[in-house]
Computed example of a mutant assay.
Amino acid sequence: MAEAGDGYRVTGVGPRDFSQLEDAWRPLDKGPDMSAFQSFEWMLLANENVAAERASRLAVRTRYYVVERAGTPVLIAPLRVHLAPISPGHRRGVHLVGRNGPADYLNLVYSEFDPRAAGAALTAAVKDFGVSSVRLERMLVGTQAQEWARGLVGSTASVSEAVRLVLPSSTAEYSAMLSKSTRQNIRTAWNRARSDGVHLEVSISSELNAAEADALAQLKRRREVSRNRRKSSGVDRVVAGARRAYFASLFASSDEARQAMTRTSRPWVLRVHADGAVCAFAFGLADNLGGSRTLRLLQVGIDDAFARYSPGLIGLHHFIDEELEHGRPHWDVIDFTRGEERYKFQLGGTSHGLNTVSLSWRPDLQASSLADP
């Protein structure tokens, strides 16, 4: 525990003591900038993987810095500190917890953003571990923490894209949002299945057991392996496979997506069945970022044997149409999250930005950015 001046106090908590943070965490993770990835439930899962991984042998440390003001927690900084570079993607410095897992949006945890508290947390990490490089990844553009970080002296930002669909008010309006070719492709896929005697059925549920989660994860993995084989040479595949296996052995969070499927309180699962067998799926979480009822799609996969029927595309399109048909959708936003895969835009999605903000942290240079909120 350290005094940070002006009534601020910073306490660093290790992954083994994460459960002690629940009382401080839960009042903060409901803030308007917080996504499901900052919730205590999600971070509890991420932390279990952090505690189990072997990366600590390679000088990687995790700390959750709780910043109190006048005795009340106002911010928690979930930070990963790399004391040495592991690879080009794992640089020496301070990072956000979750960068090795399926969390699409990372952030500090706060209800109302306090720049002094954020600065105190970064200062504590830099002092504790003797590193000055800070790299805050996957921050949603427009959140208070992202805007603050982007305005820090000496900061640079790289931009990546995520895709989301703000649902219109009717099926007619939604159909008008789609391109003529997309509408034709969807009709063709359904007709092709009927012509081949394949019965496709779309179902939605909030239940998923461990065996099903394993099967869906394997389906997605087979698809990825098949696509990589088509794109790369034999030598490239061997090297890429060895690299994946190496980092999977270090970072237990590589299994986080499958665990999330079975351990979230109310998962959302879309399945497309072809004659009774699952040929496509989508897995998501309910979220309330910014007050919008948001469905965040975290995993989407199809069985290559049924690719000619575009089961993922037609399944999601069918779901969206059903949502709008009666004029009272359960969701305001369908968030396809990170990546700019073609199907997301075919379904009417538009891009929104993520920032990775990098800088060398020196509190003496950041005085103007650490003013009272």
Rank of each mutant, 00 (worst) to 15 (best):
V333L: 04
E256F: 02
L370M: 15
A52P: 06
T11W: 01
Q346D: 14
Y64N: 02
G349H: 01
L270Y: 06
D372H: 14
A371C: 06
F336D: 07
Y105Q: 11
H317E: 07
R69Q: 12
A274T: 11
G312D: 07
V153F: 04
V141A: 09
A260W: 05
E325A: 15
N47K: 07
K180T: 15
S155D: 03
L152Y: 04
A274G: 12
V66D: 02
M261R: 10
F113N: 02
G14I: 13
A213R: 10
R16M: 04
R223A: 08
A70N: 05
A51I: 04
I204M: 12
L289S: 09
S310H: 08
S253T: 14
A157H: 02
S133F: 13
L178F: 11
Q146Y: 06
E22W: 12
L140N: 00
Y246G: 11
L45G: 07
S35N: 06
H317N: 13
E322P: 03
D332F: 04
A124P: 01
F18T: 05
G14S: 14
T350K: 12
R63I: 00
M139S: 07
R328Q: 09
A125F: 00
A213L: 07
E41D: 15
S254P: 05
L298C: 10
S169F: 00
L370P: 00
P85R: 09
H95V: 15
V357P: 01
P15W: 00
